[in-house]
Simulated scan of single mutants.
Amino acid sequence: MTLTTIGFDADDTLWHNERFFRLTQARFHDLLADHAEVAQLEQRLLAAERRNVGAYGFGVKGFTLSMIETAIEVSAGRVPAAVIGEILAAGREMLAHPIEILPHAREAVEALSDRYRLVLVTKGDLLDQERKLAQSGLGDLFDAVEIVSDKRPETYRAVFARHGTGADQGLMVGNSLKSDVLPMLEAGGWGVHVPHEMTWALEHATPPAAHPRFAALPDLGGLAGLVAAIAAGAAG
């Protein structure tokens, strides 16, 4: 077996993202302080996100709608229109936040771009993900970009067949065990976990430490070396 194609997650793998959700959630707590305690708001909002992700998808728009739904629920329908307006404004601000590349991200992508097919595989709002990729300055380094509704084994099989030589000759790098690593391993490829200090609760999972195609790195600085070792082992 050879390694021909490498996939990268985007949010919180190549650039910061979750921090903007956390800041907006803190603002949401302040807006609803008269109606619920912080712990209750967090619990109700997470339940709304889990309930709505199948209908609204991942990203800022679904998060904003879940905040509005939660505000209506905890206030028994009495939330002021001005508060709804503030929530909508917070969502719009998230869709315009500047991009901050994570340490070693550019170097990691550049180091691999000459030897492998690189594919960006990301979830989220189409326009928002396109905006962030354009602002990141990394777009020209990728051979293909896939903005998907969800990340499942069949997603990776299709993406790596379309842009590479199959998932079994592909490697996926990301901060989410649930979305970037576990389904890629199930699809037959390699999965590399690069954790971020902030990860959405719905993306948590147990590391598959015993899996022969699983690896973890503290940051992207060691990715090129890891890929070289995997490729050497695969070729051998």
Score class of each variant (00 low, 15 high):
Ala71Trp: 00
Met67Gln: 15
Ser75Ile: 05
Phe63Ser: 04
Ala105Pro: 07
Glu73Asn: 00
Val53Tyr: 11
Leu102Lys: 12
Ala47Pro: 05
Ala33Gln: 05
Glu100Ser: 04
Ala39Trp: 04
Thr70Trp: 01
Ala108Leu: 12
Glu93Leu: 12
Glu107Lys: 08
Phe63Met: 08
Ala81Cys: 11
Glu86Trp: 03
Arg92Leu: 13
Ala48Asp: 10
Val53Gly: 07
Ala76Lys: 13
Arg50Thr: 13
Thr70Val: 03
Gly57Cys: 06
Met67Thr: 01
Ser66Met: 10
Glu110Tyr: 00
Arg78Trp: 02
Leu65Trp: 12
Asn52Leu: 14
Gly91His: 12
Gly85His: 14
Val79Asp: 01
Ala47Cys: 05
Asn52Lys: 03
Ala71Val: 00
Arg106Asn: 03
Val79Asn: 09
Leu120Gly: 00
Gly85Leu: 08
Glu49Cys: 03
Arg117Phe: 01
Gln43Trp: 07
Leu120His: 01
Ala89Asn: 08
Ala47Thr: 07
Ala96Leu: 11
Leu65Tyr: 12
Glu73Ile: 00
Glu49His: 10
Leu41Gly: 03
Ala90Val: 06
Glu42Asp: 15
Gly91Asn: 13
Gly54Met: 09
Lys61Cys: 00
Arg117Gln: 11
Leu112Asp: 07
Ile99Cys: 09
Gly62Asp: 01
Leu118His: 09
Phe58Asp: 02
Ala55Ile: 07
Gly85Cys: 04
Leu45Pro: 02
Leu46Glu: 15
Asp34Ile: 00
Gly57Val: 04
Tyr116Cys: 07
Arg117His: 09
Glu37Lys: 05
Val74Leu: 05
Val74Asp: 06
Val79Cys: 14
Ser66Gln: 11
Tyr116Ala: 06
Glu69Gly: 01
Arg115Ile: 02
Arg115Glu: 13
Leu32Arg: 03
Arg106Ala: 13
Ala108Gly: 10
Arg50Ser: 12
Arg50Leu: 13
Val38Ser: 06
Glu93Trp: 07
Ala111Glu: 14
Ala111Thr: 09
Val74Gln: 07
Pro80Leu: 08
Arg92Ile: 08
Ile87His: 07
Ala96Gln: 15
Glu49Gly: 08
Leu32Asp: 01
Leu41His: 05
Glu110Lys: 09
Met94Lys: 06
Gly54Val: 15
His35Trp: 15
Gln40Cys: 06
Gln40Ala: 10
Ala71Phe: 00
Gly62Gln: 02
Glu73Ser: 02
Ile68Phe: 02
Leu102Arg: 13
Val79Gln: 01
Glu93Thr: 08
Ile84Arg: 09
Ala111Cys: 09
Gly57Phe: 06
Val79Gly: 08
Glu49Trp: 05
Ala90Pro: 01
Leu102Cys: 04
Ala81Gln: 13
Glu107Ser: 14
Ala111Phe: 11
Ala82Val: 12
Ala39Gln: 11
Ala82Gln: 15
Val79Pro: 00
Gln43Asp: 15
Asp114Gly: 03
Ala81Ser: 13
Pro103Arg: 12
Gly54Glu: 13
Ala96Val: 03
Gly57Trp: 06
Val83Pro: 08
His97Leu: 09
Ala108Gln: 11
Ala33Asp: 07
Glu93Tyr: 06
Leu46Met: 13
Arg115Asp: 14
Leu45Thr: 11
